[in-house]
């Protein structure tokens, strides 16, 4: 057998399963088709960027990935294992492996920054208070907020809140992180600090799926850009191919209009 042929065979027989795989996800909410049989595979270390107009289904698609929203049809599998959306235990395990960052942070308002990060470690992973808070301080250090550990969310800026939210997701040792427009609710001067943290994550090889309107960021770091509109992925490709000056893609059209604003 020729060496290259053997290599190809190995590749098909013991496939390296995608970290997260969505198959034919469909969902109808309030009589409106939000997602129309959308599929997506995410390999380890990739940064997929979802872009597109509001109401295009990006946010719903992201929430289907950790089954915060149960799709009407389709399946979600993590590392090749399909997840039954009605098995509560499997759901909790999936969500531990898939971290999520929200547009409006959703920090727990009654807990300090460090306790926000520690609470899931204690209650979900069953760590002791000391161990959980030590881990939480380590994660806060990663996002540069060691000195804000004992402040309540109401005393943090938007950028700091989002960084705490990232630390909270990271503390669970997720295999993938979903980011739902993490900078859209921020004042313009605070966007940079959050993007810097996400950039570091991407460079350290974290697998991420991110919905965003930050095109410069997406162009620089995305392994693939997916353009979503009316519940479909209508274009996908590397930033270079989709945004090349001579490409007549819907993505490029959308981005020039974003830049015009």
């Amino acid at each position: 057998m020729r060496p290259e042929y053997r290599y190809a065979l190995m590749n098909t027989q013991t496939p390296h399963p995608p970290v997260l795989s969505m198959r034919n996800i469909s969902i109808t909410l309030g009589g409106r088709k939000i997602l129309n049989s959308v599929s997506l595979d995410v390999e380890r270390g990739e940064l997929k960027v979802l872009i597109g107009p509001s109401g295009g289904g990006k946010s719903t698609f992201l929430q289907c990935m950790n089954l915060l929203v149960t799709p009407d049809a389709g399946s979600v599998s993590i590392e090749g294992a399909s997840v039954n959306p009605h098995d509560k235990k499997a759901l909790c395990r999936l969500r531990q492996d898939v971290g999520m960052i929200f547009q409006d942070f959703n920090l727990f308002d009654h807990l300090t920054a460090v306790k926000n990060v520690a609470i899931a470690l204690r209650r979900v992973k069953g760590m002791s208070r000391e161990a959980a808070e030590e881990r939480a301080m380590h994660e806060l250090g990663r996002v540069g907020l060691t000195d804000k550990a004992d402040l309540y969310p109401a005393h943090l800026s938007g950028g700091q809140k989002q960084r705490v939210a990232i630390a909270r997701a990271l503390a669970m040792d997720p295999k993938v992180i979903l980011l739902d427009e993490p900078t859209s609710a921020l004042d313009p001067e605070l966007v940079g600090e959050v993007l810097a943290v996400i950039r570091d994550l991407a460079k350290s090889g974290m697998t991420m799926i991110m919905a965003t309107h930050q095109m410069d960021f997406a162009t620089a770091l995305a392994s693939e850009i997916l353009f979503m509109e009316q519940g479909n992925i209508i274009e996908r490709g590397t930033p270079g191919s989709l945004l090349a000056p001579d490409s007549a893609t819907r993505t490029r059209d959308f981005c020039t209009r974003l830049a015009d604003m």
């Binding site: 915060l68 395990r93 969500r95 531990q96 898939v98 409006d104 942070f105 727990f108 899931a120």
Partner: peptide, 10 residues
């Protein structure tokens, strides 16, 4: 979002 965030953490 509070409930969502708690669920998203597992």
């Amino acid at each position: 979002g509070q409930m969502k965030a708690a669920r998203a953490l597992g």
